[in-house]
């Protein structure tokens, strides 16, 4: 059997610009995976830059179970339901690293557990290159012996796969615990310290700043897959703005469960 997972013969587009609000980021995932699935787009990796704090929740999660609603409203935290499964994360500009990879289905292992490991490998290599002993932790986590650094989630279409990842660079753990309901009992006493151990932050181990870590990730990606710097097209952005309006800014989508 061949080993799908890495092909460098594709002409990859590497997008590392553009600040968008949370609904537009999710709309971009939805639009771009559609376009790749329809054969209208080259394989792409896109780094996310956010306008404010946000909680991307998993597609199948119950909003009320995951989010401390009052805190989120008081602090203007944008809660958006992802198109992928998995768990809720807390994200702040400059304090997390999020990227989406849109790649042909033929380049991805059919076995899902294997495909997560394969698609996380280049990022783990990049973190190791910075001196952080990162490992893949099945099913979908990037971890360190002290805790979880980040998580991946995938969505599969007939001809395309979305693999997106959020890692903690220097996340405000207390804000995370106040935003997500998993933190409720943990904040009630001195147990915050033990809860903090569950999330490991890149900046606690690596001297490079946020931008330098992203540069290192881009270098490793380019070495592994090839590709050139690019931007979103106006058409892609407009389509995403429309889809944000119809879906990702609506309670009908974000609070459907």
């Amino acid at each position: 059997m061949t080993d799908p997972g890495v092909t460098s013969d594709e002409n990859w587009r590497i997008i590392d610009d553009g600040v968008h609000d949370e609904p537009v980021h999710h709309a971009l995932d939805d639009v771009l995976i559609d376009r790749l699935d329809d054969g209208e787009m080259a394989p792409t990796i896109r780094f996310w830059y956010r306008t404010g704090p946000a909680v991307p929740i998993g597609r199948f999660q119950a909003y009320a179970d995951e989010v401390a609603d009052e805190y989120v409203r008081d602090h203007d935290i944008d809660v958006v339901r992802r198109i992928t499964g998995g768990g809720a994360m807390y994200a702040e500009p400059g304090a997390v690293i999020t990227y989406s990879i849109y790649l042909p289905r033929a380049a991805v292992a059919d076995d899902i557990e294997r495909s997560y490991e394969r698609l996380n490998r280049w990022a783990i290599d990049a973190l190791r290159g910075l001196g952080l002993a990162a490992v893949h932790e099945p099913l979908n986590d990037i971890a360190h012996e002290d805790g979880k650094i980040g998580g991946a989630a995938q969505l599969r279409r007939s001809n395309a796969v979305l693999h997106h990842v959020t890692m903690s660079y220097a996340l405000d753990i207390e804000a995370m615990l106040r935003t997500l309901r998993i933190g409720e009992e943990k904040l009630s006493d001195k147990a915050v310290t033990s809860a903090e151990k569950r999330v490991t932050r890149i900046a606690d181990y690596v001297a490079e700043d946020h931008e330098a870590v992203i540069d290192r990730l881009k270098d490793e990606f380019r070495t592994t897959y090839g590709g050139e710097a690019g931007s979103l097209t106006d058409d892609e952005l407009m389509a995403a703005e429309r889809r944000a309006e119809t879906t990702f800014r609506t309670d009908e989508w974000n609070k459907r469960l």
């Binding site: 998993g58 179970d65 099913l139 989630a153 599969r156």
Partner: peptide, 30 residues
Amino acid sequence: PDGKLVTVTATYEDTIESVTITGDFFLEPP
């Protein structure tokens, strides 16, 4: 164990009338 959380909310009397499945799992197709 080492996996996801699956939650089922069910409305029932003698039969199961309605069910909602939520959690941090993955499902293909969604």
